[in-house]
Amino acid sequence: MSLVSTGDILDHERSVLAFNVIQLEHAEAIVAGAEAAGRPVVLQISENAAKYHGGLAPITRASLEVAAAASVEVAVHLDHAEDEALVWEAIELGATSVMFDAATLPYSENVARTAEVARRAHAHGVWVEAELGAIGGKGGAHTPGVRTDPAEAVAFVEATGVDGLAVAVGSSHAMTSRSASLDFDLIAELAAAVPVPLVLHGSSGVSDADIVTALENGMRKINISTHINGVFTRAVREALDADPALVDPRKYFAPARAAVAVEITRLLGTLTP
């Protein structure tokens, strides 16, 4: 069990949920929830989270320690890195998979830079995810009506050698309501054509039922962040409202961590087989 590569727990037949880590309590809650569910999970650290901590190392090392002590399989993944230097640092730290995001660049430059990242990462045994057309909320193409073209997706994967592909099928980052409308026919078409697992970003905006349908149609990695942040924040707010004199962060972080763990267990039990 413990620390594994995303590729060890994900393929065309198996699916996995991936949750973003902002602070240590997130990593602890996600793994505790996965252990209660008896399911593998991915801890994701974004470029923005690294900036929040003043660097990638502190939160990555903490997440790796939590993963290594887990009783279930846990991957530690660099999410939405736009700078190759951050990718190399993540690999040196011990991250077991990375996402290089060059989707806002011209197609030819995205291909060239992503292919080089894949080549170097694979030399270290690291699984690589990429994106074709930026996801909504990140400056690009997961706005209403924008969708990934299956033929272009196949060509991109063949040209870059990546192991997983984030695709535009109707979701959007940072949604606080679960009201996104997915194109299930396109998901099925992409899954049949693209030779690597498909990744759904912005899944916080997708209902449980629609995530299940997306998985049934071939989606394989489901990224969730804003939804669990909402669970965490509501629990903190409830603790502070219940005791306005509270000053010890442990007194409001502990119930927030516990609430996230419960929701992780529910999501894993509801959404994954």
Rank of each mutant, 00 (worst) to 15 (best):
E109Q: 08
I228F: 15
A254W: 12
N20H: 08
S177P: 10
V21K: 00
G230V: 13
V41H: 03
L93R: 05
S225C: 12
V42S: 06
A180F: 09
P255G: 14
G145F: 05
A49L: 03
A153S: 08
D8H: 12
E189T: 14
A85M: 02
M175C: 13
A70F: 03
S207R: 12
A69K: 04
A180D: 13
Q23K: 11
V41W: 01
A27K: 04
A81V: 03
V66L: 02
E189W: 10
S203R: 12
E129I: 01
Q44N: 08
V231S: 10
F253M: 15
P255S: 12
R250T: 15
M99S: 09
E84Q: 02
G230T: 14
D183I: 14
P150F: 01
R120H: 07
N223S: 11
A85Y: 01
H201N: 11
T226F: 07
R266E: 09
A115W: 02
R220C: 13
F253A: 15
D163C: 10
A259E: 09
A112C: 03
A192Y: 09
P150H: 04
Q23L: 06
N229D: 12
A168D: 10
V199T: 15
A180S: 15
L43Y: 05
T270Q: 15
T176I: 14
I187E: 06
R147W: 00
V146T: 09
I211F: 00
V162H: 05
V98F: 02
S108C: 05
M219L: 15
V157W: 03
V262W: 14
A180R: 09
G230I: 13
I228H: 13
R61K: 05
D149C: 05
S15Y: 07
A159M: 03
E158Y: 05
P249S: 13
A159T: 06
L78G: 08
A36R: 07
A141C: 08
L43T: 05
E13N: 12
F253I: 15
A166N: 11
E73D: 08
G94N: 03
H142I: 04
D101P: 02
A168F: 00
E73P: 03
G136M: 02
P58C: 08
V42E: 02
